[in-house]
């Protein structure tokens, strides 16, 4: 059962890694704004400015 000593060590190291990941996200500002990224992800990709039709019929575009 001495293998348990190793496993306990592993569990603490894993937990420390997650704690460090949280610290990093906090310092990086990922927790500062919880609303905008959720909206941002819904934006479509850029429409190519190739044809003039895009300019007029912008209501009809959906990303290809």
């Amino acid at each position: 059962m001495t293998i348990l000593y190793f496993l306990i060590g592993c569990s603490i190291v894993m937990a420390l890694i997650f704690l460090a990941a949280f610290f990093w996200s906090l310092r990086d500002g990922q927790q500062d704004d919880m609303v905008t990224p959720g909206i941002r992800v819904l934006f479509d990709d850029e429409i190519s400015p190739s044809s003039d039709e895009d300019k007029i019929s912008d209501k009809n575009h959906f990303s290809e």
Partner: peptide, 12 residues
């Protein structure tokens, strides 16, 4: 907006 091809503004 239309000159700069930014009319997607009105689609959301």
């Amino acid at each position: 907006l239309s000159e700069n091809n930014l009319c997607a503004y009105y689609t959301y």
